[in-house]
Design a protein around this nucleic acid. Structure first.
Lengths: 218, 218
DNA sequence: CAACGTTGTGTACGCTTGTACGCATGGGAT
DNA sequence: ATCCCATGCGTACAAGCGTACACAACGTTG
């Protein structure tokens, strides 16, 4: 029996919840299943998290942290020398190299926001975790579009059971990125074909709401 | 009581299932809930669909048909005169104009494939329904990327509770589209800034597997 | 040192779920 | 016209769920 004062119990429950979702999906998440996984009594989970949604929010938020760290540390996103598209492709490659499991987990939590309004703000944070570093390299609208394309590509792979194609991914990301403001990464190392471009309507049309939309907030 | 010979019953159950998912999400789908919605006895649903997955497949497939029809009839995708990005933006606008409800429904069914391998082939068909008409206007890789971006944009809106921004959408779609092979829709009506471009590696790098990936098959 | 209050535990309850099974029923063969 | 069998229906059951509640145990305070 035992641990009367266990300040890390809450954390352990969250991690257990993540493992459960990873193994059985959100459908398999129940107070009982996380209690069993975390090796705590059933009442303990209901005590720390009044509802499953609350637990889900905590789990998604925890995933956000891991994801944000991966984005920050993993790819050379901050390095102005490597083209944005390359950095993002590399980042995605790292992500995929971990296998379907972790990606399924993170996407399932992320996509759960579709039906659970309480998760939407957290989902927004998730998107921001990706958009924000990218926005340091280009304009906000382009950053958001790059994120959208990244999501779309990942989902196509995950949903249809295909494989990740770095070459295709980089090409498409580059098309998006080179149309946007090209801060910091000046010399496009790959032919200056894009030099004179992006004249079209670089910022005016893009994201009239400032960086708005992305963080919906409450 | 009654209807002994009801050949449309199966269809009615599918439609009821779609309504249930639309109203309560996949989590709310049960043999009982669809039976109640379809006004058939409980045993009838288990008789026609041995498992819920089977029912889900049928529902997703039915949604595919509706979606494919919307794509075919709705947007002027087939019209070479209107730029691809414009047509797609219009299509998305139509889709969004129906409100969150139908979109949530279709995406939830689509995204359910993440955890249910049986749905993956059907999800692949869903993607194809969009990719295929687009592929008539550009190369397969670009078509797939456009679809991915569309998905990503929709999800960003749906997941963060934002609003659809046609101007931003068209801009980003155009960047992608103008980098690809530009069949049929010749004159880029919006400034020929992109004329000399797409020299980089127009086709070589794009989708080495032909139109491969998209249809994962089994 | 003792008593109290807070924190945490374990069980018990009502409900919904998927599934299995016995019975009514209507069409086809004789 | 009658009988029979396959088809379809309604119910009954066991399992698992979220939640509520009564007790045990610890830290704290007087």
């Amino acid at each position: 029996m035992a641990r009367r004062h266990d300040p890390e119990r809450r954390e352990r429950i969250i991690e257990a919840a993540i493992r459960v979702v990873g193994a059985q999906g959100i459908a398999g998440l129940s107070h009982r299943s996380v209690a069993a996984e975390a090796d705590v009594p059933l009442g303990s989970t209901t005590y720390h998290f009044a509802s499953l949604d609350e637990l889900l929010v905590a789990a998604l938020r925890r995933c956000n942290e891991n994801f944000a760290r991966m984005v920050r540390e993993g790819g050379g996103l901050a390095d102005p020398a490597v083209p944005l598209a390359d950095a993002l492709t590399r980042l995605l490659g790292e992500w995929f190299s971990g296998g379907r499991g972790p990606m399924e987990l993170e996407y399932e939590l992320y996509l759960a926001a579709l039906r659970r309004p309480v998760l939407r703000p957290v989902a927004g944070e998730w998107a921001d975790a990706l958009v924000e570093p990218i926005a340091h390299r280009t304009d906000p609208a382009t950053a958001r579009a790059l994120t959208a394309l990244l999501d779309g590509i990942c989902l196509q792979v995950l949903l249809t059971g295909g494989e990740f194609d770095p070459v295709y991914t980089r090409e498409m990301l580059a098309r998006l990125a080179e149309g946007g403001a090209d801060r910091s990464a000046r010399g496009p190392a790959r032919g200056n074909a894009s030099s004179g471009r992006r004249r079209r309507d670089p910022r005016a049309t893009a994201d009239p709401a400032g960086d708005g939309r992305t963080r919906s907030g409450t």
